[in-house]
Amino acid sequence: MELRQLRYFIAVAEESNFTRAAERLRISQPGISAQIRQLEHDLGATLIDRSGRSASLTSAGEAILGHARAALAAAEAARHAVAEVNGLLRGRLTVGMVTACTVTPLFDALASFHRAHPGVEITLVEHNSDELIEQVRGGVADLALIGTADEPPQGLEAMPIISERLVAAVPFGHPLAEPARVTLDDISAYPIVCLPEGTGIRAVFDQACAAKGIRPNLALQASAPSTVANLALRGLGVAVLSESMAVHYEGLQTLVIDDIQTLAVLSLVYNSGKSAALRELLAHCRHSFLAAPADRLVSATADLATG
């Protein structure tokens, strides 16, 4: 059993597809298949069910997945420990980002860190926030930028970046446009245009509705806040967005939702047992975000939607 085989197995498990896993790891699909077959031979069990259109885990595969992630995390920790003893910053960091991330202070931090420590390989992965949280917990990712409802996830350290209230947005002339304050009951009388499950904005909205016993008509969903806004502009529903997102679209009236008090939070999350490389990257992130102009941080909240 080799660490690379475990890495290939984890990639297939997460992508549910050999081809996508191979593209993610930048190796050939036959190569990843051969290594996983060798791993299955060494373990004496089939780990991946190849009979369907997607590659799914067998019972044995489910049983080994957590151990595979832990083994890779332990190996990486060993590398970092040796690097610290030698006074060097080397190894690999995996950084997770919400899909379609445009938070430029994070990119600035990665660039300055790379210039200072070229011996550390940086890998970027994109997922929704729920998946990124699990990757950080499982040691697959070292650091992730995520959107959550109110508080960062339990069990992880966090560097909060920005937090905002949710608002509803409707075209001028809509029955809800005046006065500019509404309740969940008010907006739930109309179709809702929102973001998908697994995103910070959606988590806040779903929790608020559940607390009030409201079942809104979720007419349309889209991953990009611009799509949500444009659908609302065309009268297809009431958009639910963060405050700074909604004000970017001319023709939309922003409505305060009085009974949503929970904030949507954009944070960097990581495990408490930080390596030297991760500690250094966090220092670069802290400097980058503190140095970023306020308008760059406000525009960054669009990523609360996709994460």
Rank of each mutant, 00 (worst) to 15 (best):
H127F: 04
L25V: 12
R20S: 05
R202C: 07
R234F: 11
E126Y: 09
R296W: 10
T227I: 09
L47G: 11
S299Q: 11
R24L: 13
I133R: 01
F9R: 15
G307D: 05
V140A: 14
L233S: 12
L263E: 15
A219Q: 12
V140P: 02
R165Q: 14
I146K: 07
P196S: 12
Q135L: 15
H174G: 06
G138E: 08
R279P: 00
G44A: 07
H248G: 11
V167Y: 05
E15F: 10
V265S: 08
A294P: 03
G138Q: 08
L263M: 13
Q154W: 00
L89P: 00
Q261I: 12
Q135V: 04
E62I: 10
A77M: 06
T301V: 00
G138N: 04
E2C: 06
G119P: 01
A22Y: 04
G61F: 14
R79G: 09
Q38D: 09
D130C: 03
A71R: 09
V240R: 07
E164Y: 11
H80W: 07
A111Y: 01
D259Y: 07
A300L: 09
H284Y: 13
Q29V: 13
V140I: 09
G173S: 03
N86P: 05
R215K: 13
G198Y: 01
S223K: 10
V265L: 14
A224N: 09
L278I: 08
A68S: 10
A292R: 04
R234S: 07
L6M: 08
E250W: 09
R215C: 09
G173Q: 09
M1N: 12
A305G: 15
D303Q: 10
F9Q: 12
E62C: 07
G251Y: 02
F289N: 08
G61Y: 06
L255H: 13
H284M: 15
I257G: 08
L47P: 04
L72H: 05
E280M: 14
E197N: 10
L132W: 00
E126I: 03
V269C: 00
S129Q: 04
L184E: 09
R24G: 06
L65V: 13
A224W: 08
L25F: 02
A239L: 02
R79I: 08
H127V: 03
G66Q: 02
G155F: 00
V298Q: 13
S54M: 06
G235I: 03
L281D: 12
I27P: 01
V140Q: 13
R202H: 03
F107H: 08
H287T: 13
V103I: 14
H287D: 15
